[in-house]
Design a protein around this nucleic acid. Structure first.
Lengths: 155, 155
DNA sequence: TGACATTGTGTGTTACAACACCTATCTTCC
DNA sequence: GGAAGATAGGTGTTGTAACACACAATGTCA
């Protein structure tokens, strides 16, 4: 049975509203998931944000994406994507080249090493998702996804 | 109608599984909520983590809590709670005193100024939660809260 | 064409977070 | 009563994030 969040976080004060309880519920679950992913990625030397970028760039393919396009696609928008990509370039995970048509753009592409690492991570990450949500039925997952999408609609 | 997360984050690659879609859904919603809260708190000079601590300490009352108890109750556990409390003490939001019975403990309590600020924030924060989740029915909120709790169970 | 806004990117500075390590106090058990 | 371990807290260092600002390339319009 689902634990009561109020006892779980040992807060004596009751929630002001069910909306706030939902809000906290989301934040708390996300923090726990992020921690789990962070731990799983640690042996591979990448952070959740870097893994996010790798998947974005893999999805973009050979054409790559410019810095702001990467930033806009990230789960958690970091305002300092430049230096984040700097570090990933230094780690050999991505490659950058200035667009010859419009020299303002710097296109970032995933490198072979980045592709290899991302592929290596596919299975453990899928296993993790299964571990965390595998005990929910298909319709429960659909409902969860839909409810969260409806919250994002007004954000 | 709920937007499709795949198009929303402009990722061409489909989700490997519904579990991963749920996972990303949670992370993305939490990031957006955190951003909204962060913006709402900015005029008051506190971060979401500091607000979290203020509510924890208000809930604890006059007895206060020791550092590790505060950390364990936080939504996102920061390993550096000491310096976070240092800053809040410097800002006059909390007070600290060493326990006379067991001198290892340093009890932290919310200050009058902290109480005042937290009370001032109650209304806007409740309004924010309503804005984000107010369009969901009571049973939808309950379902969302329960589903998230079931995910946290295995974390 | 030349001033000016727009768009994309990078940098400098300050504050914060993460990690490992260290100190102080208390408990236990011989 | 004294060593060993457990518990609570703090510090030093390194890396990272946030914020404002500056720079470079392009587009716009008098």
């Amino acid at each position: 049975m689902a634990k009561n969040l109020r006892t779980e976080i040992a807060q004596t004060r009751p929630f002001a509203s069910r909306q706030q309880e939902a809000h906290l519920s989301i934040m708390r679950t996300a923090a726990a998931l992020d921690h789990a992913v962070s731990e799983a990625l640690k042996p591979y030397g990448v952070t959740p944000a870097q893994y996010n970028i790798l998947r974005i760039l893999r999805g973009a393919g050979d054409e790559g994406l410019c810095r702001n396009a990467v930033r806009d696609r990230m789960v958690a928008k970091v305002p300092d994507t430049t230096r984040m990509l700097d570090r990933m370039e230094a780690a050999g995970l991505v490659e950058r080249s200035r667009d010859e048509n419009d020299r303002r753009f710097v296109t970032t592409r995933i490198s072979d090493e980045g592709l290899r690492l991302t592929a290596e991570l596919d299975e453990p990450m899928e296993a993790l998702a299964h571990k965390h949500a595998g005990h929910l039925t298909k319709s429960e997952l659909t409902m969860l996804i839909d409810l969260l999408a409806r919250i994002r609609e007004v954000l």
